[in-house]
């Protein structure tokens, strides 16, 4: 599963559309703010019924999220055993170096600026899906907690 934290419905649709072209459109879960992202991952609140050990392959994280910001989510994830090693790709409109540096400082695995150009955007999302979903390996929930 790919977890997409995105509050902009247009960006969500474009991202999902690009991933669908890769044939992994059904593997996407979307959360719309920072708080929901944490609830999903730790199976609390509106996602209480979920199995928290069922971790996504990757979290595509927007920085400017309502309620809890992307950077706060990142910080929280890195402080918990379950999500300490969860691959997090920051996927943002921001072109500011400050955001990029801060993301890495808080433990992002990758930082990608969403291109305005639609071709470049689909290509970027496609590459992310290809690499993080199909190629990369990560510890599962049990291994993460045990480690």
């Amino acid at each position: 599963m790919i977890l997409l934290a995105e509050d902009d419905p247009n960006d969500e649709l474009l991202t999902v559309r690009a991933l669908k072209k890769l044939g992994i459109g059904n593997e996407i879960e979307v959360v719309r703010d920072g708080a929901e992202t944490l609830e999903f991952l730790f199976a609390t609140g509106q996602h209480a019924g979920r199995d928290p050990a069922d971790l996504p392959q990757v979290l595509l994280l927007d920085l400017k999220l309502p309620k809890v910001s992307g950077l706060e989510v990142l910080q929280k994830l890195r402080g918990e055993a379950l999500t300490k090693w969860l691959p997090v790709v920051v996927l943002t409109s921001s072109s500011l170096d400050k955001d990029m540096v801060e993301s890495y400082r808080l433990g992002a695995n990758s930082f990608v600026q969403k291109p305005v150009n639609s071709t470049e955007f689909s290509e970027a999302v496609r590459n992310l899906g290809l690499y993080w979903y199909l190629i990369n390996r990560r510890p599962n929930g049990k291994q993460a907690v045990a480690g």
């Binding site: 902009d8 247009n10 920085l63 400017k64 409109s93 921001s94 072109s95 969403k114 305005v116 639609s118």
Partner: peptide, 15 residues
């Protein structure tokens, strides 16, 4: 940096 880009991406993306 952030907010002006998002609608542009939608315009270009959906076109």
């Amino acid at each position: 940096a952030h907010d002006l880009r998002a609608p542009l991406r939608s315009m270009d993306g959906f076109a």
